[in-house]
Simulated scan of single mutants.
Amino acid sequence: MSAVPATPRPASADAAPDRPAAPDQRFALLLTPPRARGGLRVVPARVAAMCAVELQKLRHDRTELYTRAVQPALWLLIFGETFTRMRVIPTGNVPYIDYLAPGIIAQSAMFIAIFYGIMIIWERDSGVLTKLLVTPTPRAALVTGKAFASGVKAVIQAVVVIAIAAVLGVALTWNPLRLLGVLVVVLLGSAFFACLSMTIAGIVLTRDRLMGIGQAITMPLFFGSNALYPVDVMPGWLRAFSAVNPLSYQVDALRGLLIGTPAHLLTDFAVLALAALLGIAAAASLLGRLAR
């Protein structure tokens, strides 16, 4: 009898289960880079990364939180308690210390953010800024991350001021939605003032000049707002300045959310959001000038 021819086995059966893949498959990822994410998806991730990097500095040195809590505590303990007893500033049925507390929250947040440009100049001098600018991260994302990192610091400061005010008997609301609104207001206001500081840094280019300009504009912004007294008691020229001062809208929103005084919340939020967007655009346009 003739032998029956063997049935050919599939090629896949001869291959060992642990046989390496073809070279073109093994090195496919090395030869072909992965598909890049679109701009709308990458920008939030870059902003969050920059914000986390900035907050790491605070994690390693917490003394800034303690030292910055001294000034608002003095404002509430000395200025607030004294003027509450004197009753010289008309605040209606609201005790003056209650009226003052939201203004001190806004003031402490502004003081943190207004000198944020010094950190940008330091990064320029140490070479960090140049390395950041050559990455694919958009400049607006770099600025936004730094701005909202200052906002997170300001929120921590606001928590300290609220705790001090509660100890002093200030009638604050504890409504979660209103406290969430306070968080947003503090973030937006701090983002604007941080961007203002970075914009000034892109113009003056040195720490000494920025420090001088920051000190020159801080007090006019504070005293030219409604943080210490109502707009109604201001002279006409100061009332006009208060109308274009973003700090006035921040204080008005905080006062309405925390102690329930009449406020224009929609206008306040709109002005603060627009100011933050304009500040980010201005700071991002001047960021490259620092690295030259």
Rank of each mutant, 00 (worst) to 15 (best):
Ala45Ile: 10
Leu31His: 10
Ile118Thr: 11
Val128Lys: 10
Ala3Phe: 14
Ala147Cys: 07
Pro136Met: 04
His60Tyr: 13
Ala227Asn: 06
Ala52Trp: 15
Leu188Pro: 01
Arg35Trp: 11
Leu287Asn: 00
Trp75Leu: 15
Pro10Ile: 08
Trp237Lys: 07
Leu132Asp: 07
Val128Tyr: 08
Val167Ile: 12
Ile120Asp: 07
Ala6Trp: 03
Asp98Ile: 02
Trp174Leu: 09
Pro17Cys: 09
Leu238His: 01
Ala194Asn: 05
Val4Ala: 11
Val159Ser: 06
Gly145Cys: 03
Pro44Gly: 14
Arg255Glu: 04
Asp208Phe: 08
Val43Gln: 12
Thr63Ala: 15
Arg124Lys: 15
Leu196Cys: 11
Lys57His: 15
Ser242Arg: 03
Lys131Pro: 00
Ala106Cys: 06
Ser108Phe: 02
Leu274Cys: 08
Pro138Val: 06
Arg289Gln: 14
Ala273Trp: 01
Gly117Lys: 01
Ile162Glu: 06
Leu196Pro: 05
Pro8Arg: 05
Ala141Ile: 04
Tyr249Ser: 08
Ala165Pro: 03
Ala263Asn: 03
Thr91Ile: 05
Thr82Leu: 15
Asp98Val: 03
Leu205Asn: 12
Arg178Gly: 01
Ala282Pro: 04
Glu54Met: 14
Leu272Tyr: 00
Arg139Val: 03
Leu278Gly: 10
Pro20Val: 00
Arg59Asp: 11
Thr218Cys: 09
Leu196His: 02
